[in-house]
Design a protein around this nucleic acid. Structure first.
Lengths: 213, 213
DNA sequence: GGATTTGACTTACACTGTAAGTTTACCTTA
DNA sequence: TAAGGTAAACTTACAGTGTAAGTCAAATCC
């Protein structure tokens, strides 16, 4: 660790954020990991916020856009699944991407690539803009919600068993029923990105067909 | 303001959060507004986090579920639109709702009501669970993204005019095209919740029809 | 009226981001 | 090689954060 660099800082910051979340990424904390004092970081980033912007760029760059020519539905689907995988690798990122404006090259390339798929599929540019926005709203929202729940079905089962007794079945019948199904194993309780994603895409396809006729 | 109470604290905290965001809601700040010192608040809430949980509950309680019996599609649609309006009134809330687990009565009632609409529409409980999750993922994600952009078309136009010159049209053709359309007024650039919502619902309807046949 | 509980208070600690100013070390040019 | 310039580290300081711990007065209850 002879000398600092933006790349080195970003790499270590990414490690910390992935492990401890954005709130665990303090300038002093990060500096310590780099064998340096906090203020030295300000030679490379104007503020903590701009550092986080750089982290978001780094993450967006990981999302892969389909290269070979696909049906627009398959293309968008594949893109969303890639975004999903990347966002799950970086648990802090979905909220950051939703709530901050990023105009870095990775983000622009990501948007451009998505628009291109839709336009190639016969949509106008404003329509492609709506489609991109709708898909990402769903993907970001889904990931963020999923991250707050236990991942393993087993943990889910335990959590359900723990909390369910306190919930009156008379006022919340369906909710409690679901809880019982999760506890007895007849329903895993886990959600998949594909469920809503395929509904969205199916709706879009219908929308396009209806307009053509 | 003779005496503190959870209701009074929540009311003022809600004002602050709505105006300055969650990061503007500090215990000292909040206490000052209540003519009290910070530590007095801890007589009513164990921590800042539990206070925020209470705020979320308060917000969820504002969401209205359709009362009269509607088609399940219309019922879910109406519910999502209500949630959307409420979340826009409380700009900090969408992220909070996505990222924290809330088991208060308002939240449970909200979920239960949503499940009930879907089940009444012929879906199984696990399916209703998936539907609820998909819709809320989209709504939360949409609101959060929308809140970071300028609201007025005019501001959007100005922002586009300001940033577009720096973006090379050769590498981002569709993106730049969209920018031009926003600047010249042929495309407002604004998104609507309904676009993706109706796609989702249409996809769900198809899904159900296909299964029935 | 005395005991008990409630709800406010003060103080203190370990953090946070970052503005401002200083020193060290290297690199370039004479 | 010596000198000058600059880049990149440093220290110090400030105003803020959440909250643990202990104190003290007033209201409530037996």
């Amino acid at each position: 660790m002879s000398r600092l660099s933006t790349e080195k800082i970003i790499a270590v910051a990414l490690e910390i954020a992935d492990r401890d979340g954005l709130e665990g990424l303090s300038m002093r904390n990060l500096a310590t990991q780099l064998n340096v004092k906090a203020m030295s970081l300000y030679n490379y980033f104007n503020s903590r916020e701009t550092l986080i912007d750089a982290l978001v760029e780094k993450v967006v760059a990981e999302i892969v856009l389909p290269t070979q020519m696909l049906d627009w539905v398959d293309g968008l689907r594949q893109r969303c699944l890639s975004a999903y995988q990347v966002l799950k690798k970086h648990p802090w990122a979905s909220v950051a991407m939703m709530s901050r404006i990023n105009t870095g090259p990775a983000m622009l390339g990501y948007i451009e690539g998505t628009l291109a798929i839709a336009v190639a599929g016969g949509w106008s540019e404003p329509e492609a803009d709506h489609i991109w926005n709708a898909l990402d709203s769903y993907v970001y929202g889904f990931v963020t919600q999923e991250l707050k729940f236990p991942v393993e079905p087993q943990e889910y089962q335990q959590a359900a068993a723990q909390y369910l007794p306190e919930i009156p079945a008379s006022t919340y019948p369906h909710f409690v029923n679901l809880g019982h199904q999760i506890i007895d194993g007849s329903y895993h309780g886990l959600h998949t990105l594909e469920f809503g994603l395929d509904c969205l895409l199916e709706g879009l396809r219908r929308h396009q067909q209806q307009r053509a006729s």
